[in-house]
Design a binder for these strands. Structure first.
Lengths: 131, 131
DNA sequence: ATAAGGGTTCCCGTGGCTGGAAGGTCAAGC
DNA sequence: GCTTGACCTTCCAGCCACGGGAACCCTTAT
């Protein structure tokens, strides 16, 4: 299977797949003409990567997870630890965004949004006390 | 005021302040010895930037907001539009993170996390149907 | 005179790709 | 056989918003 088909199967752009080979997440074989040749196992890995990335795991997380994935004798606790840490970092990000949202929506609500220049958003941004 | 004091006043690293000058967000004067000299207006701008960045506005958003901030005849609607768009993008990010969180916490919960190799997290990541 | 603690510029690296240039390969149509 | 177009290859540059560190200059205190 060529890279185009692999891309279609996994939903990953060809560029991304090449990049994943570059950083040694996958190691597809090569045909005589130099084209990458993707086997079922490669597709499976790419699907795994696509999904893990979509869940926000970093590339290095993915690398670790892929290793565990291939290690049939892994302890599920190892996997759970990585996933748990990532879950915590997602929670942190959500909290941070919620805080931003609260502050900003307060500012936006208080702004008339008309032709006049008075704008509590700008005032609030300039003077933290007033946010 | 030198860059160190400006940094202390605004909470922004000196590196960041130099970067902001580089990309022309601020234009502090220079002393005879070549040191940057920050006036009250510069500090005010930096404070504005620090706060807007903390709320997740991009640099280009900040540039636009700063322009409006300095334009005493601006319409508050212009400011509100930028802030509203950013608010919407924050909401998008929160939704995306919540979706990730839901999926991932489901996987994590279903994993025993012991010494056995069976791990629904890895299975779920490999096979989307089973997530 | 020297040492510490400012400041300056410059260039490289980050993460995770994405775009584009320059060129090789393959299948189809004339 | 030749061209066209779609595919594939490598490599280089750029994105965002800085941060690290080198190499050097300026100021102040001892």
């Amino acid at each position: 299977m060529n890279i185009g088909q692999a891309s279609a199967k996994t939903g990953l752009p060809a560029k991304t797949i090449r990049y994943y080979e570059d950083i040694a997440l996958i190691r597809p074989q090569r045909d005589a003409n130099g084209y990458r040749s993707f086997l079922a196992a490669d597709i499976h890995k790419l699907t795994f990567l696509a999904r893990a990335r979509a869940l926000g795991f970093t590339i290095e997380d993915c690398r670790a997870l892929l290793e565990l994935w291939e290690d049939k004798s892994r302890a599920s606790a190892d996997v759970k630890r990585i996933a748990g840490q990532h879950l915590a970092s997602i929670e942190d990000k959500i909290s941070a965004l919620n805080a931003m949202h609260e502050t900003l929506s307060g500012l936006v609500t208080s702004c008339a949004g008309d032709n006049r220049p008075d704008c509590p958003i700008l005032t609030g941004l300039g003077d933290p006390e007033q946010a």
